[in-house]
């Protein structure tokens, strides 16, 4: 189980770095779908191994919402507006890749210095690294889709962490969290669409979201 956890964790880290590298929104969204798929499968396997029904339900919900529904919604949205290319970056790509990498190391150092003594889970720095990377993705791109994806990466890593480190978290809490997040994504979808509409009135700023 630990190997699987480490494998998925580093795959997530690599996928975020890959997202930082990409210029095209479509690829970023597909990458996000893959990362959700990995998390969902991990939860599923763990639920199966531990005979934990709530984890399996959680995995199914994750797969349904994150892997299927949200990327599908975003992609269909993209085709309509034909806005595949990510327009504006606050930080240049090379720098953001390196910063993303440094965050992984920062997470490791923080984890080793503070948390490790109290949790004593070997690979516990991985979810923290992914959370930091998600925050950085939100900061480094000026695009509503990418910001939302960055936010969802943070949530993914939380599920990842909660699922692996504390699998016995009360189900009512986890379900509440998941429903909340689902609602949040829907609402942000609405606001995102509104933003797009209000901006697209100005022809010059057609493919430019303002941060």
């Amino acid at each position: 189980m630990k190997e699987l956890f480490v494998l998925v964790g580093f795959a997530e880290i690599v996928l975020v770095i890959f997202m930082q590298w990409q210029y095209y929104l479509k690829k970023i969204i597909v990458t996000f779908a893959i990362s959700s798929l990995l998390i969902g499968l991990l939860l599923f396997v763990q639920g199966g191994l531990q005979n934990n029904t709530s984890l399996i339900v959680l995995a199914a919900l994750t797969l349904l919402v994150r892997f299927f529904f949200i990327p599908y919604y975003m992609l269909s949205h993209l085709e309509k507006v034909y806005k595949e290319k990510n327009p504006k970056q606050v930080v240049s790509t090379g720098t953001s890749i390196v910063v993303s990498l440094l965050l992984v190391i920062l997470a490791y150092v923080i984890y080793r210095l503070t948390l490790y003594r109290y949790i004593s889970v070997e690979a516990g720095s991985i979810p923290i690294a992914i959370i930091l990377q998600g925050i950085f993705l939100v900061i480094s791109r000026n695009n509503a889709f990418v910001q939302l994806i960055g936010y969802m990466i943070m949530e993914n890593s939380l599920f990842f962490m909660a699922g692996y480190m504390f699998p016995d978290l009360p189900f009512i809490v986890e379900a509440g969290i998941l429903l909340d997040l689902l609602g949040l994504v829907m609402i942000s979808g609405v606001v995102m669409k509104l933003r797009e509409d209000s901006v697209s009135e100005v022809v010059d700023e057609f493919d430019e979201f303002r941060g």
Binding site: P170, I177, L179, D180, G183
Partner: peptide, 9 residues
């Protein structure tokens, strides 16, 4: 956890 859920809601 439920307090968190409420505030997020």
């Amino acid at each position: 956890g439920l307090i968190w859920v409420g505030i997020e809601a």
